[in-house]
Write a protein that binds this DNA or RNA. Structure first.
Lengths: 194, 194
DNA sequence: CGACAAACGGACCGGGCGGTCAACTTGTTA
DNA sequence: TAACAAGTTGACCGCCCGGTCCGTTTGTCG
């Protein structure tokens, strides 16, 4: 595994940035040709760096998830576990993490960073629960699944305020708190393996 | 506008049923050719009944929304407005309404039935709010947007219990109740048009 | 330098898509 | 039952997609 040539390393970064933009604008249906054009390289160069479109997607997901993992790790030592969980969830939603998570389905490569995120969120939720900030019957997997809901909900209101996701995140957070919680009608899901 | 010939009417129903099944299984990417095969007709017949794939989608959405509108109308006269709203939302989620709403984006034709649904949900929410069953700062549009969240959330947990949506619907419902509600950080969205 | 491997680019391929069409079949109606 | 319009069919079209390939360019290093 020799180090990348200078131009190759630069093009790789250009490609990741262009692909992220293109996927944000057009979803997973964005074409490889458009990504290459946006990055200012030929189409063949895309496939030299990422043998398959799916691996390009996986590379983007991996980096986003790792960013979030860093945030989660920092928050694990925060003084107020309840506020820490809220901050993590807000950060994840703000970064339009739902887009990245939606890649999860198409991702061929199982991404270990996601396993790490699951473990980190488990610990964040455990700490918040022990602190009485989260209802007893909610698991880390629940929170992980609910992460993407606010942005998805907002995607149905095309010309809405860019802050609208905060509204639905707040409603969901209220639903996750112990005050006024009703028993849940279905058991929690198994941890995500993926 | 002469009435349909007998075989044409039958084929139309076969096509709508086949298309609904195919979209459920493969999403909006299901091909017209597959739909035709499933219905046991030629591909040309599809386009005779629905000039465009989008209009086929719209026809399915319309019928689903109209079914839900009938439910909503019945519940408008229920004795307990809070329970009525819960029942409506549960019905909508159970029928995997999120799939249909996801068609909303691709639907070229603006569907008037959706306007009616928006008005009906507004009234259901108003009644529930007056009854103290829903927090004061939540609107009908909020509920309409949140309708699709449970099923969407569950779609990320592939091999999960088919009842898992109930769990997340319950959490969201707890978040919609007045007890333990924190002020919402963003204003409500404008009513959905279209 | 010069030479070689690494990287690049874009024409090209097979395949699947939505949609069209003209020849054919069938329900309807007098 | 005859005759016509309504309906059906599947081959066909143009398009765009992900992915390949090879002739060309370019960074690297002795």
């Amino acid at each position: 595994m020799s180090p990348l040539r200078a131009d190759a390393a630069r093009n790789r970064e250009l490609l990741l940035a262009a692909a992220a933009d293109e996927f944000d604008e057009h979803g997973l249906d964005a074409s490889v040709a458009d990504i290459a054009r946006r990055a200012g390289v030929g189409k063949g160069t895309v496939f030299r760096h990422f043998p398959t479109k799916g691996e390009l997607i996986s590379a983007i997901v991996r980096s986003r998830v790792e960013e979030l993992n860093a945030v989660a790790e920092r928050l694990l030592t925060a003084a107020d576990p309840g506020a820490a969980l809220v901050e993590f969830v807000e950060t994840a939603a703000r970064r339009q993490q739902e887009r990245d998570l939606s890649f999860l389905r198409g991702a061929t490569t199982p991404i270990d960073a996601q396993q790490r995120m699951a473990a980190l969120v488990d610990r964040l939720v455990d700490r918040a629960r022990e602190h009485g900030a989260v209802r007893a019957d909610v698991t880390g997997t629940d929170v992980l699944l609910l992460l993407c809901a606010p942005n998805h909900v907002v995607s149905y209101a095309p010309d809405a305020s860019p802050d609208l996701w905060r509204r639905y995140l707040a409603i969901i957070l209220d639903g996750l708190r112990p005050e006024g919680a009703h028993p849940l009608p279905a058991p929690p899901p198994a941890p995500l393996t993926g």
